[in-house]
Protein backbone atom coordinates (compact mmCIF):
# COMPACT_ATOMS: atom_id res chain seq x y z
CA UNK A 1 0.00 0.00 0.00
CA UNK A 2 2.74 2.39 0.98
CA UNK A 3 4.52 1.41 -2.15
CA UNK A 4 1.53 2.39 -4.26
CA UNK A 5 1.60 5.87 -2.75
CA UNK A 6 5.33 6.09 -3.35
CA UNK A 7 4.77 5.11 -6.94
CA UNK A 8 1.99 7.64 -7.53
CA UNK A 9 4.07 10.37 -5.91
CA UNK A 10 7.03 9.34 -8.04
CA UNK A 11 5.08 9.35 -11.29
CA UNK A 12 3.65 12.74 -10.41
CA UNK A 13 7.09 14.20 -9.71
CA UNK A 14 8.33 12.39 -12.81
CA UNK A 15 5.59 14.09 -14.81
CA UNK A 16 7.01 17.46 -13.75
CA UNK A 17 10.53 16.36 -14.70
CA UNK A 18 9.26 15.03 -18.02
CA UNK A 19 7.57 18.31 -18.92
CA UNK A 20 10.80 20.21 -18.26
CA UNK A 21 12.93 17.54 -19.92
CA UNK A 22 10.82 17.87 -23.07
CA UNK A 23 11.85 21.52 -23.30
CA UNK A 24 15.54 20.66 -23.05
CA UNK A 25 15.33 17.78 -25.48
CA UNK A 26 13.23 19.51 -28.15
CA UNK A 27 15.44 22.58 -28.17
CA UNK A 28 18.51 20.35 -28.31
CA UNK A 29 17.05 18.25 -31.11
CA UNK A 30 15.96 21.19 -33.24
CA UNK A 31 18.28 24.10 -32.45
CA UNK A 32 21.22 21.82 -31.51
CA UNK A 33 21.91 23.78 -28.33
CA UNK A 34 21.70 23.20 -24.59
CA UNK A 35 19.41 25.89 -23.26
CA UNK A 36 20.75 26.29 -19.75
CA UNK A 37 18.29 29.09 -19.10
CA UNK A 38 15.39 26.66 -19.45
CA UNK A 39 15.22 26.03 -15.69
CA UNK A 40 14.81 29.75 -15.12
CA UNK A 41 11.71 29.82 -17.30
CA UNK A 42 10.18 27.54 -14.64
CA UNK A 43 11.05 30.24 -12.09
CA UNK A 44 9.45 32.93 -14.28
CA UNK A 45 6.33 30.76 -14.43
CA UNK A 46 6.40 30.26 -10.66
CA UNK A 47 6.55 33.98 -9.88
CA UNK A 48 3.81 34.74 -12.40
CA UNK A 49 1.60 32.20 -10.68
CA UNK A 50 2.44 33.62 -7.26
CA UNK A 51 1.56 37.09 -8.50
CA UNK A 52 -1.79 36.19 -10.04
CA UNK A 53 -3.05 33.42 -7.81
CA UNK A 54 -4.72 35.83 -5.35
CA UNK A 55 -6.67 37.25 -8.31
CA UNK A 56 -7.78 34.01 -9.90
CA UNK A 57 -6.08 30.59 -10.15
CA UNK A 58 -7.11 30.00 -13.77
CA UNK A 59 -5.92 33.45 -14.77
CA UNK A 60 -2.64 32.66 -12.97
CA UNK A 61 -2.08 29.54 -15.07
CA UNK A 62 -2.94 31.26 -18.34
CA UNK A 63 -0.78 34.27 -17.44
CA UNK A 64 2.16 32.00 -16.56
CA UNK A 65 1.93 30.13 -19.85
CA UNK A 66 1.58 33.30 -21.94
CA UNK A 67 4.34 35.15 -20.12
CA UNK A 68 6.76 32.19 -20.23
CA UNK A 69 6.14 31.77 -23.97
CA UNK A 70 6.86 35.47 -24.53
CA UNK A 71 10.04 35.32 -22.42
CA UNK A 72 11.22 32.08 -24.04
CA UNK A 73 10.64 33.28 -27.60
CA UNK A 74 12.21 36.68 -26.84
CA UNK A 75 15.33 35.03 -25.42
CA UNK A 76 15.61 32.88 -28.51
CA UNK A 77 15.14 35.84 -30.83
CA UNK A 78 17.62 38.21 -29.19
CA UNK A 79 20.15 35.99 -27.41
CA UNK A 80 20.37 32.76 -29.41
CA UNK A 81 19.29 33.56 -32.97
CA UNK A 82 22.20 35.96 -33.61
CA UNK A 83 24.51 33.08 -32.64
CA UNK A 84 23.17 30.61 -35.18
CA UNK A 85 26.18 28.83 -36.58
CA UNK A 86 28.52 30.14 -33.86
CA UNK A 87 30.63 27.79 -31.76
CA UNK A 88 28.65 25.68 -29.26
CA UNK A 89 30.76 27.17 -26.47
CA UNK A 90 29.63 30.72 -27.31
CA UNK A 91 26.01 29.59 -27.28
CA UNK A 92 26.47 27.77 -23.98
CA UNK A 93 28.05 30.79 -22.30
CA UNK A 94 25.23 32.98 -23.62
CA UNK A 95 22.66 30.59 -22.16
CA UNK A 96 24.39 30.73 -18.78
CA UNK A 97 24.38 34.53 -19.06
CA UNK A 98 20.66 34.54 -19.82
CA UNK A 99 20.08 32.31 -16.80
CA UNK A 100 21.95 34.73 -14.53
CA UNK A 101 20.09 37.65 -16.04
CA UNK A 102 16.68 36.10 -15.35
CA UNK A 103 17.60 35.22 -11.77
CA UNK A 104 18.99 38.70 -11.12
CA UNK A 105 15.91 40.36 -12.60
CA UNK A 106 13.69 38.22 -10.39
CA UNK A 107 15.77 39.25 -7.39
CA UNK A 108 15.43 42.94 -8.27
CA UNK A 109 11.67 42.62 -8.70
CA UNK A 110 10.74 40.17 -5.94
CA UNK A 111 13.65 40.48 -3.49
CA UNK A 112 15.82 37.65 -2.30
CA UNK A 113 13.67 36.44 0.61
CA UNK A 114 11.76 33.23 -0.16
CA UNK A 115 8.05 33.72 -0.68
CA UNK A 116 5.79 31.13 0.87
CA UNK A 117 2.25 30.61 -0.31
CA UNK A 118 0.30 27.74 1.15
CA UNK A 119 -2.04 26.09 -1.30
CA UNK A 120 -3.94 23.16 0.07
CA UNK A 121 -6.15 21.32 -2.36
CA UNK A 122 -6.88 18.57 0.15
CA UNK A 123 -6.24 14.87 -0.02
CA UNK A 124 -8.05 11.86 -1.32
CA UNK A 125 -8.73 9.08 1.16
CA UNK A 126 -9.18 5.70 -0.50
CA UNK A 127 -9.40 3.17 2.29
CA UNK A 128 -5.96 3.30 3.84
CA UNK A 129 -4.54 5.27 0.93
CA UNK A 130 -4.16 9.00 1.30
CA UNK A 131 -3.02 10.86 -1.80
CA UNK A 132 -2.75 14.61 -2.20
CA UNK A 133 -5.17 15.98 -4.80
CA UNK A 134 -2.38 18.16 -6.20
CA UNK A 135 -0.34 15.00 -6.83
CA UNK A 136 -3.15 13.46 -8.82
CA UNK A 137 -3.78 16.66 -10.81
CA UNK A 138 -0.09 16.88 -11.62
CA UNK A 139 0.03 13.29 -12.78
CA UNK A 140 -3.13 13.54 -14.89
CA UNK A 141 -2.13 16.86 -16.46
CA UNK A 142 1.38 15.73 -17.29
CA UNK A 143 0.04 12.60 -18.99
CA UNK A 144 -2.43 14.71 -21.00
CA UNK A 145 0.35 17.10 -21.99
CA UNK A 146 2.64 14.29 -23.10
CA UNK A 147 -0.06 12.58 -25.16
CA UNK A 148 -1.02 15.90 -26.73
CA UNK A 149 2.60 16.66 -27.60
CA UNK A 150 3.05 13.23 -29.12
CA UNK A 151 -0.06 13.69 -31.27
CA UNK A 152 1.08 17.18 -32.27
CA UNK A 153 4.49 15.97 -33.42
CA UNK A 154 3.14 12.92 -35.22
CA UNK A 155 0.03 14.29 -36.89
CA UNK A 156 0.39 17.99 -37.59
CA UNK A 157 2.29 19.66 -40.40
CA UNK A 158 4.33 21.80 -38.02
CA UNK A 159 4.99 18.81 -35.74
CA UNK A 160 6.37 16.74 -38.60
CA UNK A 161 8.39 19.74 -39.74
CA UNK A 162 9.97 19.75 -36.27
CA UNK A 163 11.10 16.15 -36.76
CA UNK A 164 12.40 17.03 -40.23
CA UNK A 165 14.38 20.02 -38.96
CA UNK A 166 15.86 18.03 -36.09
CA UNK A 167 17.05 15.43 -38.56
CA UNK A 168 18.34 17.55 -41.44
CA UNK A 169 18.03 21.33 -41.47
CA UNK A 170 19.20 21.69 -45.06
CA UNK A 171 16.83 19.08 -46.46
CA UNK A 172 14.01 20.65 -44.42
CA UNK A 173 14.73 24.03 -46.03
CA UNK A 174 14.61 22.42 -49.45
CA UNK A 175 11.05 21.29 -48.59
CA UNK A 176 10.14 24.92 -47.93
CA UNK A 177 10.31 24.70 -44.15
CA UNK A 178 11.30 27.96 -42.46
CA UNK A 179 13.80 26.68 -39.92
CA UNK A 180 13.76 29.89 -37.87
CA UNK A 181 9.99 29.63 -37.51
CA UNK A 182 10.23 26.00 -36.37
CA UNK A 183 12.90 26.91 -33.82
CA UNK A 184 10.65 29.69 -32.51
CA UNK A 185 7.72 27.26 -32.18
CA UNK A 186 9.98 24.84 -30.34
CA UNK A 187 10.99 27.47 -27.81
CA UNK A 188 7.33 28.47 -27.41
CA UNK A 189 6.24 24.89 -26.69
CA UNK A 190 9.18 24.27 -24.35
CA UNK A 191 8.41 27.47 -22.43
CA UNK A 192 4.70 26.65 -22.13
CA UNK A 193 5.62 23.25 -20.71
CA UNK A 194 8.06 24.95 -18.32
CA UNK A 195 5.25 27.22 -17.12
CA UNK A 196 3.07 24.21 -16.36
CA UNK A 197 5.99 22.50 -14.64
CA UNK A 198 6.45 25.70 -12.60
CA UNK A 199 2.83 25.52 -11.51
CA UNK A 200 3.00 21.89 -10.45
CA UNK A 201 6.40 22.21 -8.81
CA UNK A 202 5.11 25.18 -6.87
CA UNK A 203 2.09 23.17 -5.69
CA UNK A 204 4.64 20.68 -4.39
CA UNK A 205 7.18 22.93 -2.66
CA UNK A 206 4.97 26.02 -2.01
CA UNK A 207 8.04 28.23 -1.72
CA UNK A 208 9.33 30.65 -4.36
CA UNK A 209 12.92 31.77 -4.64
CA UNK A 210 14.96 33.12 -7.52
CA UNK A 211 16.62 29.72 -7.86
CA UNK A 212 13.28 27.90 -7.82
CA UNK A 213 13.97 26.36 -11.23
CA UNK A 214 17.52 25.23 -10.59
CA UNK A 215 16.89 21.88 -8.91
CA UNK A 216 14.00 20.64 -11.08
CA UNK A 217 15.94 22.04 -14.06
CA UNK A 218 19.06 20.00 -13.41
CA UNK A 219 17.00 16.90 -12.53
CA UNK A 220 15.01 17.26 -15.75
CA UNK A 221 18.17 17.79 -17.76
CA UNK A 222 19.49 14.57 -16.21
CA UNK A 223 16.23 12.89 -17.19
CA UNK A 224 16.56 14.15 -20.77
CA UNK A 225 20.09 12.73 -21.02
CA UNK A 226 19.03 9.43 -19.43
CA UNK A 227 16.23 9.12 -21.99
CA UNK A 228 18.53 10.20 -24.84
CA UNK A 229 18.84 13.92 -25.48
CA UNK A 230 16.95 14.92 -28.60
CA UNK A 231 14.40 12.13 -28.18
CA UNK A 232 10.86 13.16 -27.18
CA UNK A 233 9.77 9.73 -25.89
CA UNK A 234 13.17 9.55 -24.18
CA UNK A 235 12.46 12.73 -22.20
CA UNK A 236 9.12 11.32 -21.09
CA UNK A 237 10.57 7.96 -20.03
CA UNK A 238 13.62 9.56 -18.42
CA UNK A 239 11.48 12.04 -16.47
CA UNK A 240 9.06 9.44 -15.15
CA UNK A 241 11.91 7.05 -14.30
CA UNK A 242 13.82 9.68 -12.39
CA UNK A 243 10.70 10.79 -10.51
CA UNK A 244 9.92 7.24 -9.40
CA UNK A 245 13.53 6.60 -8.36
CA UNK A 246 13.55 9.81 -6.36
CA UNK A 247 10.27 8.95 -4.68
CA UNK A 248 11.44 5.44 -3.78
CA UNK A 249 14.74 6.71 -2.40
CA UNK A 250 12.98 9.32 -0.29
CA UNK A 251 10.61 6.71 1.12
CA UNK A 252 13.46 4.56 2.48
CA UNK A 253 14.97 6.36 5.50
CA UNK A 254 18.31 4.54 5.24
CA UNK A 255 19.05 5.95 1.79
CA UNK A 256 16.89 9.06 1.57
CA UNK A 257 19.84 11.32 2.35
CA UNK A 258 21.62 10.00 -0.76
CA UNK A 259 18.71 10.53 -3.15
CA UNK A 260 20.43 13.06 -5.41
CA UNK A 261 23.63 11.03 -5.47
CA UNK A 262 21.69 7.92 -6.45
CA UNK A 263 19.88 9.76 -9.25
CA UNK A 264 23.05 11.13 -10.77
CA UNK A 265 24.73 7.72 -10.40
CA UNK A 266 21.93 6.24 -12.48
CA UNK A 267 22.74 8.80 -15.15
CA UNK A 268 26.40 7.78 -15.13
CA UNK A 269 25.62 4.07 -15.22
CA UNK A 270 23.16 4.43 -18.10
CA UNK A 271 25.62 6.55 -20.06
CA UNK A 272 28.33 3.94 -19.50
CA UNK A 273 26.10 1.14 -20.76
CA UNK A 274 24.33 3.12 -23.50
CA UNK A 275 26.08 6.41 -24.29
CA UNK A 276 23.15 7.69 -26.37
CA UNK A 277 20.71 7.30 -23.46
CA UNK A 278 17.80 4.88 -23.25
CA UNK A 279 15.97 5.88 -26.43
CA UNK A 280 18.58 8.09 -28.10
CA UNK A 281 19.69 7.22 -31.58
CA UNK A 282 23.17 7.48 -32.86
CA UNK A 283 22.94 9.96 -35.67
CA UNK A 284 24.72 9.11 -38.85
CA UNK A 285 27.37 11.62 -39.69
CA UNK A 286 26.44 13.96 -42.50
CA UNK A 287 28.89 14.87 -45.19
Amino acid sequence: MDFLITLVNGLSLGGIYAMIALGYTMVYGIAKMLNFAHGDIIMVGGYTILLFIPVNPVLAIVAAIVFCVIVGVTIERFAYKPLRGASPLAVLITAIGVSTLLQSLAQVIFGSAPKIQQINLGALQLGQLKIEISTIITLVCSVIVMVALHLFVKYTKVGRAMVAVSEDKGAAQLMGINVNFIIMITFAIGSALAALAGLFYFLKVQTMTTTFGALPGIKAFTAAVIGGIGSIPGAMVGGLLLGVVESICLSIPAISAYTDAIEFSILIIILLVKPTGLLGKKRREKV
Binding site: V163, A164, E167, D168, L174, M175, G176
Partner: peptide, 27 residues
Protein backbone atom coordinates in the same frame (compact mmCIF):
# COMPACT_ATOMS: atom_id res chain seq x y z
CA UNK B 1 16.18 32.47 -48.60
CA UNK B 2 16.32 28.76 -49.32
CA UNK B 3 12.95 27.85 -47.79
CA UNK B 4 11.13 30.23 -50.14
CA UNK B 5 12.69 28.87 -53.33
CA UNK B 6 10.52 25.77 -53.49
CA UNK B 7 7.40 27.96 -53.44
CA UNK B 8 8.58 29.49 -56.71
CA UNK B 9 8.61 26.14 -58.47
CA UNK B 10 12.21 25.01 -58.13
CA UNK B 11 12.85 21.83 -56.17
CA UNK B 12 16.12 20.07 -55.53
CA UNK B 13 16.85 16.42 -54.82
CA UNK B 14 20.08 16.91 -52.89
CA UNK B 15 23.23 14.87 -53.15
CA UNK B 16 23.02 11.82 -50.91
CA UNK B 17 19.18 11.92 -51.08
CA UNK B 18 18.78 13.21 -47.54
CA UNK B 19 15.36 11.72 -46.96
CA UNK B 20 14.02 11.98 -43.41
CA UNK B 21 15.09 8.66 -41.94
CA UNK B 22 12.88 8.79 -38.85
CA UNK B 23 9.73 9.56 -40.81
CA UNK B 24 7.76 6.99 -42.79
CA UNK B 25 7.69 6.93 -46.59
CA UNK B 26 4.22 8.51 -46.48
CA UNK B 27 5.34 11.22 -44.06
Amino acid sequence: PCHKIVHLGMTQVPEGRRIFQELTVYE
